[in-house]
């Protein structure tokens, strides 16, 4: 399956801003029936971006309406959510969601966070008509694939931002943004591209200019480094 995984990673990288291509690679690699990509939460709002079938889309819609489900848990915890058998009565999470899907052909459900650094914006949901377990390798692979989708989703959202509110960037301000990018990549241990995306995403989330956020980072007012209180709480 390693070959399947690396070609799935490549397909996702190539998918860029085309949501139509986000689900297929997950179905190629994992023993699941359907996949969907949804944004939830404050950053980008609740929206299904891609779904491989109607049931996958319905599972997302239900979670938006009910405000609970694996997708929300993935958003809140920033970690994979694994439910290999929904009829395992030991589990008590998501009572309303479980009741709502009792008649649907869904036995297992999984969610992997869409995130770039500390910015979390949704989840990739996978479901299976049969009970199924994903082992640790599969879980790690799905996380890595969801991370690629997360970058695409954030980039696409930022591309639609009305840049008129942004003060025109000068060479000097770009220099400060590069310096802030360096601080953020060191804080989070990520690439310069991702670090810039984190800065732009934060600016977007707070309706501020990228330059403003960069200044806060350089002055130490905003620090993305993980702390005991949580991630990126400052600012």
């Amino acid at each position: 399956m390693t070959g399947g995984f690396s070609s799935a990673m490549e397909s996702l990288e190539r998918a860029g801003g085309n949501p139509g291509q986000y689900c297929r690679p997950f179905l190629d690699v994992f023993p699941v029936t359907g996949a969907s990509v949804a944004t939830v939460g404050a950053l980008l709002g609740s929206e299904t971006i891609a779904a491989s079938d109607h049931l996958a889309a319905r599972l997302d819609e239900l979670q938006f309406d009910l405000g609970e489900g694996p997708c929300w848990d993935a958003l809140v915890t920033g970690a994979a959510v694994l439910e290999p058998d929904l009829r395992d009565h030991q589990r008590r999470s998501w009572p309303a969601f479980r009741t709502a899907i009792a008649q649907d052909d869904v036995r297992a459900i999984f969610a992997f966070p869409l995130a770039v650094g500390p910015l979390r914006m949704g989840a990739v949901d996978l479901y299976s008509a049969q009970p199924v377990r994903l082992d640790r390798t599969q879980t790690r692979q799905a996380d890595a694939m969801a991370a690629i989708v997360g970058r695409h989703v954030l980039r696409s959202a930022l591309a639609t931002v009305d840049r008129e509110s942004e003060p025109s960037s000068t060479a000097y301000s770009r220099r400060l943004v590069h310096q802030a990018t360096g601080m953020v990549l060191a804080q989070l241990g990520i690439t310069p591209d991702d670090a810039l995306l984190v800065i732009e995403g934060r600016a977007f989330a707070e309706s501020r200019s990228v330059m403003d956020v960069a200044r806060d980072i350089l002055s130490g007012l905003l620090d993305f480094a993980p702390t005991d209180e949580g991630i990126g709480d400052a600012g």
Partner: peptide, 14 residues
Amino acid sequence: RIVVEQAKGVVAYT
């Protein structure tokens, strides 16, 4: 030069 600016940020932080 961009990489030098980023590196300044890395060192300033670390």
